[in-house]
Design a protein around this nucleic acid. Sequence first.
DNA 1: GGAAACAGTATCTGTAGGACACAGTTGTCC
DNA 2: GGACAACTGTGTCCTACAGATACTGTTTCC
Lengths: 236, 236
Amino acid sequence: MTDADTTADGTIQLLWGLREGPTRGPKPVLSLERIAQAAVDIADAEGIAAVSMQRVAADLDFTKMSLYRYVTGKDELVAAMIDLAVGEPPTLEELPGTNWRTRIEAWVRLLATTWEAHPWLPWVTMGDRVMGPNETGWTELSAAVIAQTGLTVPERMSLARMLGGHIRATMSVSTAGTQPWVNRHQAALLREHADRFPTLRSMLDGDAAPPPDYGRDFGLRLILDGVERLIAQRSG
Amino acid sequence: MTDADTTADGTIQLLWGLREGPTRGPKPVLSLERIAQAAVDIADAEGIAAVSMQRVAADLDFTKMSLYRYVTGKDELVAAMIDLAVGEPPTLEELPGTNWRTRIEAWVRLLATTWEAHPWLPWVTMGDRVMGPNETGWTELSAAVIAQTGLTVPERMSLARMLGGHIRATMSVSTAGTQPWVNRHQAALLREHADRFPTLRSMLDGDAAPPPDYGRDFGLRLILDGVERLIAQRSG
DNA sequence: GGAAACAGTATCTGTAGGACACAGTTGTCC
DNA sequence: GGACAACTGTGTCCTACAGATACTGTTTCC
């Protein structure tokens, strides 16, 4: 068994409630939920970099090492944070409309709203990992909706991955009141090197305001238009 | 001036060659290029987490602190790594074809190949930052190609952001010989909780092989089909 | 009531980024 | 040509981090 396996197993046990609760000994004062919530609060307010074992424990008025009674390590804490932050998904019936397009649009809107409330999520949901029950629930929901399209299974997998990636790609990046697609320093450089980057330079001072949602709606429209075209192509 | 400003300024000066070279004093033995190359080699072989000032210096047979003569901090080193790894973009003429669709497809293919060679890039290209000349060149190229579509400027910005996000979302994640859209532990959990996640469960054991490119081609097709539809809609 | 099983603590280790003072080296000016 | 200023690379120190380990005290079951 590799290290990755061990870690993953620990994360699985924790998130999916497979850790056996002890009977004897002192009553636990802390709980995984309280710890994860404290960590989420810190991350929401000060960014994910501010979340350390020390800091989380301090906010709970405990010592750092006491956290390790509830969590095998920081990776597990982060996994718990993710599933807590992402929250329980809605049910299929709670999505408005009945056709796949309306439902997908609603799913994206809802999940994006959740993500925007926890801007650190993109940083901790990268790479190979195991999703918790809540996150898996969101994925299940999208898979169920996407199944309505009649696409093949691999195509559905691709589309599902794409939707998640699209939300991630259209998260706001806290550029503190500048143009949302390029920050102040970048803009200055483009002006200075206008000869090398004429197209980008020319895009800088159009009076056309860049989309406030980072192109989320527009991009989703492109994708779903593409899906419709594919479906139409096959059925006709 | 905030800390972020200071950092960004340092990064700008370094990558864009704005740091004044000294005349007196001992000849520098090291160079930014050697340092960045050593760091990239480490990241390519052992992942970005293996890149520390200590480690980079050791590989070059220097002390850790000597690196700070060439780089104000680790952030700057990482910025230099990115621009080195991403490399010089091709010219518009080097892209095959002449219509926007063929060119965009080629651009995505080329940049994705570059990124696949440096799988740590997704981890260090998040958040607000300043791009180096090479990365800006790639963006300029895509902007120039996208301009051919005749979309509005905000729409072009959105599409450009989308293409980059799509490459990022379809990077391989080193799942060591399992199904590429879900790892072994996740699959086991889906089987165990088939009642809660019936759709995902049913997708597990289709004999349909998931796309080896994580749906990159398929997704790009959807996006560009959407663009074509939008153009057609407007022109007639 | 004793012993095992637990919760939380105190202390220690290794590694990280980085500040700072230093020794040695090189070009420039008198 | 010598002195000085400017520089490169080194050695040492500090702080913050994740985590291991041994401990004190508490609870429950036999």
